[in-house]
Design a protein around this nucleic acid. Sequence first.
DNA 1: TTTGCAATGTGTAATTTTTACGCATTAGAT
DNA 2: ATCTAATGCGTAAAAATTACACATTGCAAA
Lengths: 244, 244
Amino acid sequence: MAKIIPNLSVDCVIFGFDFNQLNVLLVERKLDDEKTGKSLIDDWTLTGYHIFEDENFDTAAARILKGLSGLDNIYLEQFYAFSRLDRVNSPNDKLWLDHQSEGFSERIFTVGYFSLIDNTTVSISHNDRNVKWFPITDLPELGFDHKEILEKALEKLRAKLRSEPIGFELLPEKFTVSQLQRLYEVILGTKFDRRNFRKKVLQMKYVIPLDEKQKGVKHKPAQLFIFSKEVYEKTKTERFDFSI
Amino acid sequence: MAKIIPNLSVDCVIFGFDFNQLNVLLVERKLDDEKTGKSLIDDWTLTGYHIFEDENFDTAAARILKGLSGLDNIYLEQFYAFSRLDRVNSPNDKLWLDHQSEGFSERIFTVGYFSLIDNTTVSISHNDRNVKWFPITDLPELGFDHKEILEKALEKLRAKLRSEPIGFELLPEKFTVSQLQRLYEVILGTKFDRRNFRKKVLQMKYVIPLDEKQKGVKHKPAQLFIFSKEVYEKTKTERFDFSI
DNA sequence: TTTGCAATGTGTAATTTTTACGCATTAGAT
DNA sequence: ATCTAATGCGTAAAAATTACACATTGCAAA
């Protein structure tokens, strides 16, 4: 087994979408006093771990994702490296690290990855800790500098969502136009006209209509679409925008 | 003096613009055999250095820039962290590291920053090594994984140039419309219609015309403009693009 | 069986933005 | 005085974006 690199970790900001909200996966950080049973720490953190000698950052992030989901074809993107001098330095953070089996005493740097998964079909579990999806509009107390990391991840996600078709990663393979619209609306915090949004999507050659309808809904079922990465790669053109 | 962190460095991709080409600053990596005098290594690298215990990545990058230019208000942006297992592993790279005063034996990770400076007014010098501007269209042999780092930097620079007004960082305070146009053309590798480009620039409230003309040119002197970050921040609006 | 509900699907006109394109002007150099 | 090289300006056509209303579908409830 390869050795851990003690001063470097990877943290994954795992985003999920449930057709309604953008969610982020957090793991519970719970520590009770051994004698009194009183709760010393009870908050949440991102999923992350140190990297091994035989890994690069990408493979470390993929390993973490695989451990949680069992999948290894999940969208992952490195977005920033964090190095604040006091990033793991609150009393709770120190207490927590002291109680971990590996005794980390060094300053720890971390490389942030964000991951996009479809909240409705991918199931996540953690070996020995409690994990839970939180809507990004309603987050609990976060440990370490994970609030900062999460905010940066969101910022980068929003920027990327505006310039590349990564939103589809958050939807099941087959999706409806209004699911896609809702996704854009909740992530970018905007509202679009339903007819104009549909018009825009229909003219994208890489969003392909299927001869198939939504099922199990109690209203008129919508047409299903798939995203074709191949068609996108073939037809994409760079655009001079320079507008924002 | 603070201690070095032996397995972490910052590499700066310093871009400059001379009204004609996009350039990158490189430092010469030269090593001769002590007996025979024969050249063992003669190539170029990015500017970079290890980070110190009392620094974060940003301050380390700023320190490097300050050392080269004397300035500390230069545009700097972290763009990616590099971790390939064999990133400093060629015979030349090993030989070079063996000859450095600090004997680095560990695997080294690096965080890439790109920097934008005005090639025509900022002057750069290195204490004890030869530095030189190279047009990005005509690069020499690069050491370590610096070719990969430079390519990633360019990719990120292009993406950012399309969505945010960072091009002005590469120009002197006062600039003409066609200098700006040339800048966009060489970085993005496109051509714009002169009249339409001007129209686009003139409608940007944050590009402010001066009552002043270019001097010392042997043709009709052009009007000068300045970029106002304040006006930009006040008037910017997010745009739904999603087109690329 | 009928009715109500909730969301889907469609078209057009007005406005704004983008594109294409040619000619007169200026200041230094010769 | 003339040449040169780049600036400065305007308009028409095309394309993209915006605003906006009503009929349809399928299930659920009455």
